[in-house]
């Protein structure tokens, strides 16, 4: 069966169901981020469990050794640091709280933009501002939060007082490209907004 041109075009158009789906997905994303970044660590703190941290250190793999398979002597390992102090818990929680705030703000901006597009108000100053904020959040926020997470992990690992271990700083440089892409889209919307304003004043 051959789809009509109008039917194919409607597949690409955002409608009310897309807006609802976006609301559900973005809400779940925000809730899951809050759960994994804030609520779970808080729960571990309250119930007296340790801080989960990734560290780089010596790795033993006896079965690989027996099989004669070569492997790195060092690697990234997830560990649970027992009995951390309150200040260490707060230090570990801070990046998670910031990540949650960033994700919540970003999801809100994205949802409002989707809602405006569905409502026929794609080209407006508000959309441009939201997309610019979103672009900056992605381009700068993600790498900065990666560094903060790494610094916090370094402190947690340092509390073990084992010199052979070190923390991991994972900076997501691809976020710079993604953020730049959003900023380019924002600029396109700015041009569209200006064209709409010109059209409204055309006699």
């Amino acid at each position: 069966m051959v789809r009509s041109r109008a039917a194919v075009r409607s597949l690409w158009e955002l409608d009310r169901s897309d807006r609802v789906a976006a609301a559900v997905i973005l809400t779940v994303t925000t809730v899951m981020t809050a759960a994994t970044q804030v609520i779970v660590p808080l729960w571990r703190w309250v119930t007296g469990r340790g801080i989960v941290v990734d560290y780089v250190g010596p790795v033993d793999a006896p079965r690989l050794d027996v099989a004669g398979v070569a492997h790195d002597a060092e690697g990234t390992v997830r560990a649970v640091v027992p009995g951390p102090s309150a200040s260490l818990w707060l230090l570990d929680l801070a990046p998670g709280v910031l990540v949650t705030v960033f994700v919540a703000v970003g999801c809100w901006m994205l949802w409002r933009t989707t809602a405006d597009i569905v409502g026929g108000e794609a080209f407006g100053t508000r959309t441009v501002v939201r997309l610019r904020v979103l672009g900056v959040l992605v381009a700068l926020g993600v790498p900065v939060l990666g560094v903060l997470r790494g610094v916090a992990d370094l402190q947690v690992v340092a509390s073990l007082d084992l010199p052979e271990l070190t923390g991991v700083i994972d900076v997501r440089w691809e976020a710079l490209v993604a953020g730049f892409l959003v900023l380019v889209v924002a600029e396109a919307f700015r041009a569209g907004t200006r064209m709409r304003e010109d059209l409204e004043g055309l006699v």
């Binding site: 304003e197 010109d198 004043g201 055309l202 006699v203």
Partner: peptide
Amino acid sequence: RARAVRFST
């Protein structure tokens, strides 16, 4: 209040 005027107008 016009921002643009057509030559035809």
